[in-house]
Design a protein around this nucleic acid. Structure first.
Lengths: 189, 189
DNA sequence: TCGGTCAAGTTCAATTTGGAACTCAGAAGT
DNA sequence: ACTTCTGAGTTCCAAATTGAACTTGACCGA
């Protein structure tokens, strides 16, 4: 998604502070898709330092941690469930799950090798411990992100975004045909 | 973002429709970071079909199109500006820019090879044409995404998100030390 | 019960990605 | 003017990502 990056201050450039003010202003105020930009930009600023930290401190990749987190919220979920709710392709998750199992963070799936249908995944005690240990950092980052808003504003923001999410089946998925067909010259390259 | 995915309906699993209701419900209503989840989920649902379409129709990768789009909004910006406002690492963008130049979508940078300091980038006529041709699809997707909201609600949503973005320098960047130090066992793996 | 269809999960291979090291142009300091 | 410092952009290469094909269990209808 999306997103990837820095740490000590100058690796990728996702640092919000200092400069790039021109382009940032343009993307904020002169953007034909202002909402989409805010979405992506905030997601980036939120995710980047957290997953960087997870990687450096625990040696877990982003998809791996996403699986852990997903199972902590919905124990017994399948790889497919995680894929649907996180956007990672299923083969990436397959590998992530295998490694989590190897690391002892997911309890071993009985009978599976070969590719069975719908496997319910469960965190091991160690997996739960890791989740509990790391959760506060995610919560803290969310709180930090929202400090600019009052309690009431957060309420409203949450409500509006929920509305958009709940209507997702109406708008997400494939692009409408008319949109796609705007392009006469398909298939170059 | 980071982000990536489906098309004909069953490639990655980011399809919002049909199933995974359990886990989706849990992530929506039982999440310690509800705002962050909505952010990521919406960004995913928005980006995925668009960049899929860009790739299939124009042969441009996501970072490549991001550079194009960024320059369309802020002509004369540098690679670093794009990196700061998009989150892609600079080497990825360096490659993207090189290819865009090769494809004739970016006007050739005079004197550069070797690595000069701060190069102002400009779209070529062809680059502008491609942007204008593809922009409607992005706008349409944003509109589709917001259909669930009234005009007033969109106004409020935009305002609240802007607030959070503008306060970014306060909260984004490195994780606060206390948060990081929660972990006693650093450096495994 | 058999054959057919579907989809979850895996494997493989080719591409893409991004961390690290490097080059080098301006800026800063003396 | 000379040296040092800073940081934008590039190159390299190991690692991660993912599209495509495959395997296999589950479900369905006759």
């Amino acid at each position: 998604m999306t997103g990837p990056r820095p740490e000590t201050g100058e690796k990728t450039g996702s640092m919000p502070n200092a400069s790039a003010p021109e382009m940032l202003e343009a993307k904020l105020w002169g953007n034909p898709c202002p909402f989409a930009f805010r979405l992506n930009y905030l997601a980036l600023l939120y995710n980047t330092p957290l997953y960087e930290w997870i990687r450096d401190s625990y040696g877990l990749s982003r998809p791996e941690y996403v699986v852990l987190y997903s199972l902590a919220l919905a124990d017994g979920g399948s790889a497919r469930d995680v894929s649907r709710t996180s956007g990672f392709p299923k083969n990436t998750l397959s590998r992530a799950i295998k490694r989590l199992e190897l690391m002892g963070l997911i309890s071993p799936r009985e009978k599976a090798p070969g590719g069975g249908r719908k496997q319910a995944l469960h965190l091991s005690r160690k997996g739960w411990a890791l989740f509990e240990e790391t959760r506060p950092a995610f919560e803290a980052q969310e709180q930090r992100m929202l400090t600019a808003l009052s309690e009431g504003e957060r309420q409203i923001l949450s409500e509006l975004m929920s509305k958009v999410v709940l209507a997702a089946r109406e708008w997400a998925g494939e692009l409408p045909a008319e949109t796609r067909l705007v392009t006469p010259g398909e298939e170059q390259q």
